[in-house]
Design a protein around this nucleic acid. Sequence first.
DNA 1: CGGGGACATAAGCTGGGGTTATGAGTGAGA
DNA 2: TCTCACTCATAACCCCAGCTTATGTCCCCG
Lengths: 306, 306
Amino acid sequence: MSESAERGGLAHRVPDLGALELLLAVARLGSLGRAARELGITQPAASSRIRSMERQLGVALVDRSPRGSRLTDAGALVTDWARRIVEAAEVFDVGAQALRDRRDSRLRVAASMTIAEYLLPGWLIALRTARPDTAVSLLAGNSTVVAERLLADEADLGFVEGPTVPAGLDAAVIAHDHVIVVTAPSHPWARRRKPLDAAELAATPLILREKGSGTRQVLEAALGTLARPLIELSSTTAVKSSALSGAGPAVLSELALGEELSARRLIRIPVEGVRLRRALRAVWPTGHRPTGPARDLLGLTRAPLA
Amino acid sequence: MSESAERGGLAHRVPDLGALELLLAVARLGSLGRAARELGITQPAASSRIRSMERQLGVALVDRSPRGSRLTDAGALVTDWARRIVEAAEVFDVGAQALRDRRDSRLRVAASMTIAEYLLPGWLIALRTARPDTAVSLLAGNSTVVAERLLADEADLGFVEGPTVPAGLDAAVIAHDHVIVVTAPSHPWARRRKPLDAAELAATPLILREKGSGTRQVLEAALGTLARPLIELSSTTAVKSSALSGAGPAVLSELALGEELSARRLIRIPVEGVRLRRALRAVWPTGHRPTGPARDLLGLTRAPLA
DNA sequence: CGGGGACATAAGCTGGGGTTATGAGTGAGA
DNA sequence: TCTCACTCATAACCCCAGCTTATGTCCCCG
């Protein structure tokens, strides 16, 4: 993330979550008072909070009138940025909630790191709207750990990544984790018209995760040869940062890239003739077809076998 | 966003930004004390803050030892979710900062709503690492407004979307806003093997923005006929929510979809034989080639003409 | 065996955000 | 025109989260 000398800290320049939620509520409901009521606080509290947020940002956010409150132009812009933060917070929330309720919950899920990080919270948000009262617990670990938990009846549903299904488990492919090649927009590859081929990819020094990591394995299996590292880094985030800084082409899981792709801060380079993907599977003990909440969750994860 | 009865409010279950930043610093630096120093607070403050975050989440996040602190397994998971929030906050920050410094700044940008919302903050984050001391101001408005500002020398660089370039301006296409068709994973289209064609798209009732909106215009221009609305909604977010809830296929700008696509909560349905995209252009007064910071920013926005 | 890290604990201050109580516009209807 | 019902703003007060300083404990290393 290129931590520049940035004195002050984000927290002092960005309103806190409560204020952002309040702003969204005002936008939706068109009135400070109504928004306050929805969040369970009083109207003066809401009024003061919005005001102090406007002071902090140095911009008027809402037009007050005796008939209600509407967003300013600037307010509309700010509200959309705020919504992104709140959505990220929702992901955090359901993830953390699942993590917390270890023991005593109704649906116990065991998942690989990648899935637990990027996919599960989204599914759980969806599950919550369908079955609001289901408490979920989450354990993250590798395939072996997931299998152990399922077989010991300490988990109801598991998720694993990779080519093999652990023994004793039935599985269904629910999606694929695409490993993709990206560069900064300034890189020459970003202007290519023809897709890369395997030979070219194998011949080019790339920004990679360390040897043995999931994405690296997928890449080398697909190439049928060892990859040539330009830099080797031990975290997905570090790889992303290097790529963003223009150090060179990087290989990353598509799941780790959110906004960077759609905002064109990183460009996806098409690759042809190489199967750069890894199956993501739901798993359960052989015979024990998922039922109840596990079945609901499984239904939500059904994606096309693209 | 399907506001369920969700009592309590996110803010009470999710640590505040300061705490999340602290957690990231601890993860990066491997020590509470060092992290504290980096954020400009004392070691006991950091210690207590992390502890209260652990209490709040009900999970141990860091392993303390007299030699330093390392993340727990759960801590690593939580840290990655936290990073998403902090990144969204950074986007908010640079956007808001640009919005605030209206008058007295060195680089004045005028941009269409879509670009100001989704693209500009990312570019400004990148610009900040290259030119940390450049103050940027941002005005959001439609093409006409952008053109006015540029011609009145009240802006140094503009960004507009749509097929035409306002008179008196030079332009360069920097990217394309792809309008795409998405459905929930449960929708039959999510399992199609063949791309949609124009006739099929025109014949199917779709979840759309209101008539006259940008994405709707692109869609109807591409189809050469009016679209058939299943539901008409007045905000991008509302369209997204409806699609997520499985109400039907929706048409949205790719820029508005972040995590939903990569996490497969919404599935992109390929469409063939239809040009569902709109040029995004940088613009400046004819003759006045951008120089200085404006030139730097323009350089950052260069993306392939995909 | 004495530093010097690293983290924990304790006591005290401060301020942001909450509350209640009240005032003051505006518009709609009797 | 008066009054009610709605909006938002202001004032006075309270509380607690989070900060600070000052100290204690543990462990490793020279």
